[in-house]
């Protein structure tokens, strides 16, 4: 079988894995790095459940092969909170404003929101709606996701 050794940096930690080139980044994160917080909802790039940050930018982890991510700085939902006590402002806001129900789409939304707001917390509502429309949620009707993201933005602007 066609396996290649690969070094990935995820959430500041090094992962040395050996994988087939055909394995997507999402699958390697989940199966080889043990980071199952990144979910797969469609595997064709539409739902956004697998959204993570690569070099600070939101990407679909189902549309990239893990071998391509060599040398990139990857961040998943497990790396969002500073430690086991504190949550990231986006996580806190989703909790407070009931921005999740079943939680399956949540990691993707958190990464999308966190990546966007860390780059620039000063975004108009219209921009936020445009960006958050990248991902699908089936439970919440989105309103609380928007409310939470706006609340997190306000906190991150301070």
């Amino acid at each position: 079988m066609n396996q290649v050794p690969l070094r990935l940096y995820v959430n500041g930690e090094r992962h040395d894995v050996t994988v087939e080139p055909r394995k997507t980044l999402a699958d390697v994160l989940r199966e080889d790095c043990g980071l199952t917080g990144t979910h797969l909802g469609c595997e064709h790039g539409v739902c956004g459940a697998c959204t993570i940050l690569a070099d600070g930018q939101p990407i679909r982890a189902c549309l990239m092969f893990a071998v391509q991510a060599e040398g990139m700085s990857l961040r998943t939902v497990e790396g969002l909170a500073p430690d086991d006590e504190e949550l990231h402002p986006v996580q806190r806001a989703f909790w407070k404003h009931h921005g999740l129900q079943c939680g399956f789409c949540t990691p993707g939304f958190l990464m999308l929101a966190a990546g966007t707001l860390e780059e620039d917390p000063d975004r108009s509502d219209e921009e936020l709606v445009d960006i958050l429309s990248s991902n699908l949620c089936r439970c919440t009707g989105y309103q609380n996701i928007l409310t939470a993201t706006k609340a997190a933005a306000a906190e991150m602007r301070e």
Binding site: H44, G45, R60, M64, F65, V67, Q68
Partner: peptide
């Protein structure tokens, strides 16, 4: 040729595209 992969990889995931070699130009 694999560049952004945003059209190619979905087609590969569906196995509608099955190249035997991918040349990643990134």
């Amino acid at each position: 040729v694999l560049a952004g992969g945003q059209s190619l990889v979905p087609m590969m995931n569906f196995r509608l595209a099955r190249p035997s070699r991918l040349i990643d130009i990134n």
